[in-house]
Design a protein around this nucleic acid. Sequence first.
DNA 1: GCACATACCTAAGAATCTTATGTATATTGC
DNA 2: GCAATATACATAAGATTCTTAGGTATGTGC
Lengths: 104, 104
Amino acid sequence: MKGTLKTIILHLLENEGRMYGYEISQKVKELSLDRIQLTEGALYPTLHKLEAEGWLNVEKEHIGRRVRKYYSLNKKGESMATQKIEEFKEFMDTMKLVLHLQPK
Amino acid sequence: MKGTLKTIILHLLENEGRMYGYEISQKVKELSLDRIQLTEGALYPTLHKLEAEGWLNVEKEHIGRRVRKYYSLNKKGESMATQKIEEFKEFMDTMKLVLHLQPK
DNA sequence: GCACATACCTAAGAATCTTATGTATATTGC
DNA sequence: GCAATATACATAAGATTCTTAGGTATGTGC
């Protein structure tokens, strides 16, 4: 995933408002046309890290007998989402220059 | 650099024919409009790895009293260069889908 | 009831990059 | 002439991020 996992998660939360881990992995699979299969070993530690960095709110909900953890962006998280997307766009533009790819 | 260093090196060698390490770092700086500053700690180990994987030819040349190591693609390296560029394009397309970016 | 999907989690190891350091020669500015 | 900078190679410690592999448990479809 080349270091873009945080960017993806922040963007999805910005777009959807509120998501839980498993839901994020399914959404990424769907949006990427099955090309990105998020592994749990990457997903959950990253969510915990984003939370620890103070960018996410977490709410636990009981669905039947199971606990589901819903994540959403707080204010800091919102500005981080915007920033990460901008950084990624700039990264793509730079790579196009270096790899001599036509902007299409 | 998000895992794109090999791709960049292979592409530059494909494009320029023959380059040495320091020259590669300067070319990347130039093409990226100073946005990518390749560090030697990343560059040289990667060159050695590409060589060990059997994708590069190496020729040593004496410039004054110094030794310069010129790298070029062999056949395997040429097909790897093409493949890596294709993979990167697909990666960008996938990211555009996931991040809801307009193809421009 | 058994397979599969849902839903969370962690830990070991691999890969890649940054930072720091080392060595040495060549060139440029004053 | 000499000091600073540029050229040119290299390695090693540590950080980050990801893969692989394992663990636990509930819910659903046939």
